[in-house]
């Protein structure tokens, strides 16, 4: 099964890039070819998350910007297994699939208009080539998101948001005009009252958080973002929080800087994104 996923958020800082990077990383570990396309043409931070310093803020070769302006036939691809500085991803695990990053140009300006046909061609090619392709446009209803939606290539949309009242409300407005059948939500950086991170808080603080958490659940249900439409819940994790990057098995098992629960959450999100049955739960 192949799948194109638009990973979007209503605003900055929801955790799209790091979630998306970990999704394709996990898919590659499963032995499938996976690709991450950085359509966030204004910011270009994906290289850093993958630990590819040569493309930390876009590539010096002809990237997505060049492609969309017609300057090249195919945007430059970074083979993460080869080029990542982090030693563990570079040691490509046996039987892993390809792990490709398609970055923007290092000095590319956000194009004023995007050629819809060019976007469509690109998406179709990726659809043929990769088991999973995560495309991340800029925050909100950016021109790149509009172009992606207009390309009429079958896709699913994962909407990342933080677990706060403000984010829930903004996200509900953001998705209002999208087809609900293809939209699912990813709750990112979620504190739950039983999180290990919350040990050490006073009883009053925990009671307060517990009550607020309950309110958020009720609000989410009211806004049409309840459990039935949640594709994944990514807990707060030190590695994601302090240095947005791939969580490798070594991070969890050897150095233990990351939580196993985070990896499990990403795995679960990946399974949901790729399966019809888990996507349409209720």
């Amino acid at each position: 099964m192949t799948m194109i996923i638009f990973l979007v958020a209503a605003g900055d800082g929801a955790g799209c890039t790091v979630t998306g990077a970990n999704l394709v990383y996990r898919q590659a570990l499963r032995g499938e070819d996976a690709c991450y396309a950085d359509f966030d043409l204004g910011v270009r931070g994906a290289g850093e998350v993958f630990g590819v310093s040569s493309a930390a803020h876009g590539t010096t070769e002809a990237g997505l910007h060049s492609y969309l302006q017609g300057a090249c036939r195919d945007p430059h691809r970074v083979d993460v297994w080869q080029e990542s500085d982090r030693w563990s991803p570079r040691k490509r695990p046996r039987r892993a699939g390809q792990l490709i990053l398609v970055p923007g140009d290092q000095d590319g300006q956000e194009p004023a208009a995007i050629d819809g046909h060019a976007v469509q061609r690109l998406l179709r090619r990726w659809d043929d080539e990769f088991g999973l392709c995560v495309v991340h446009p800029g925050p909100g209803l950016s021109p790149s998101l509009e172009a992606l939606l207009a390309a009429a290539v079958p896709h699913r949309i994962l909407v990342a948001h933080r677990w706060t009242r403000r984010d829930l409300e903004a996200t509900a407005r953001f998705v209002a005009r999208m087809d609900p059948g293809v939209v699912r939500f990813v709750r990112c950086a979620v504190f739950t009252p039983e999180s290990a991170e919350l040990t050490g808080l006073t009883g009053a603080q925990l009671a307060w958080i517990d009550e607020r958490d309950r309110e958020l659940h009720a609000l989410a249900a009211r806004l049409g973002m309840g459990q039935g439409r949640v594709a994944g819940v990514i807990p707060v994790d030190p590695v994601l929080r302090w240095r947005a990057q791939l969580i490798t098995d070594d991070d969890v098992q050897a150095t233990k800087v990351a939580n196993e629960a985070t990896v499990e959450a990403v795995e679960k999100l990946l399974t949901t994104a790729l399966s019809d049955d888990r996507w349409n739960r209720l």
Binding site: T192, P193, E194, H217, A218, A220, A221, G226, Q227, G228, L282
Partner: peptide, 8 residues
């Protein structure tokens, strides 16, 4: 009966 309100 409503998954959003089930207690942990």
């Amino acid at each position: 009966d409503s998954p959003d309100q089930a207690a942990d």
